[in-house]
């Protein structure tokens, strides 16, 4: 462990800013995906193992739109919306049948969908990885130098966009009628039904929103990463870690945990470059031991 390197980094504005921005970018992208996962679990009680596959679909849809239109913004929006619609169909046709099923059945169904989608994208888009969607022209500029820290403008855009999405999500969940219904559905769906609320509509809406967020994460990740079948497999593990650390079902917990993981990865690369992955799991283990319900989770859950 290079503790002195970490100390040197923290007292150097260039290193501190560079690592902090890197950590923010990692964390915010992770938040987009993990918030969808935790939302679906919190309201529907479904551990959606296919969430990573939806992230992958977002990347493929975005790549396709980019290829057809050459417009980055459109590719991100349509890519994510496409996954949202796919999520709606997925929920109506399959997920809605297993709300009361055992956990094993839920996992098996979701895992089957992962395998099907992984193969399906190869049939449609080919077996080889696709090039990244690319960074919009406006961001194809030299990086910014702030206190000697090198910061790519595109990373600032990703961080900003994710923050905005986070705020919109917070607004929807806390300030709108839909959000109140969603929270009520998470606590007592039967009571909601008794009050004449269409619970299926709520469930489908939540799953669609969760899928949209996964798709958005995938579409943004595809801007600088290659697009390939199975790409959701690694992000799903990190998303589950975030969900466990933040508290199952808690969006604010997912936000906090994503930031912790992002910073741990970024500053961990300075202090213990050979243990950055391990560090992530270590944090999860510590949280599970000290606060099993997660940082912002509800103990009852």
């Amino acid at each position: 462990m290079e503790i002195f390197a970490l100390f040197d980094c923290i007292i150097s504005p260039a290193c501190l800013l560079s690592q902090a921005t890197g950590g923010l970018k990692i964390g915010m992208l992770l938040f987009l995906v993990a918030s969808g996962l935790t939302l679906v679990f919190g309201v529907l009680g479904v551990i959606n193992f296919a969430h990573g596959a939806l992230y992958m679909l977002g990347a493929y849809f975005s790549w396709q739109v980019m290829t057809l239109t050459g417009h980055f913004g459109l590719s991100v929006i349509l890519g994510s919306l496409g996954v949202g619609i796919f999520g709606l169909l997925f929920e109506r046709t399959l997920i809605s049948r297993i709300y009361n099923a055992e956990l094993l059945v839920q996992i098996l169904l979701c895992y089957s969908v992962v395998l099907i989608l992984d193969d399906l994208v190869m049939i449609i888009w080919g077996d080889e990885f696709l090039s990244s969607v690319g960074v919009p022209e406006v961001f194809q500029v030299p990086p910014l130098f702030i206190f000697d820290a090198i910061i790519p403008p595109f990373h600032l855009a990703i961080i900003g966009m994710s923050f905005i999405v986070g705020i919109i999500l917070w607004f929807i969940m806390t300030k709108t009628r839909f959000g109140r219904l969603v929270r009520a559905a998470a606590v007592n769906p039967k009571m909601l039904e008794a009050l004449g609320i269409n619970i299926n509509f709520i469930r489908a809406g939540v799953f669609m929103l969760g899928s949209f967020l996964a798709g958005l994460g995938g579409a943004l990740a595809a801007s600088v990463g290659s697009v390939v079948s199975g790409m959701g497999n690694s992000i799903i593990i990190e998303s589950f870690i975030v969900t466990v650390i933040g508290g199952m079902g808690s969006i604010s917990g997912a936000f906090l945990a994503s930031l912790i993981i992002g910073m741990a990865r970024s500053f961990g690369a300075v202090a213990m470059p050979l243990f950055t992955d391990g560090l992530m799991f270590l944090i999860m283990v510590l949280v599970l031991v000290i606060r099993p319900q997660g940082l912002m989770g509800n103990k009852k859950k």
Partner: peptide, 30 residues
């Protein structure tokens, strides 16, 4: 198959090496 290499790249930026050797391949290298 890691999707995000930011932490390694910031490490490179910090160390300012003259050269980098990489045996990454395929989509990871891209």
């Amino acid at each position: 198959f890691q999707p995000d290499y930011t932490e390694v790249i910031t490490q490179i930026v910090r160390e300012k090496p003259d050269a980098i050797y990489s045996c990454l391949w395929g989509g990871d290298l891209v």
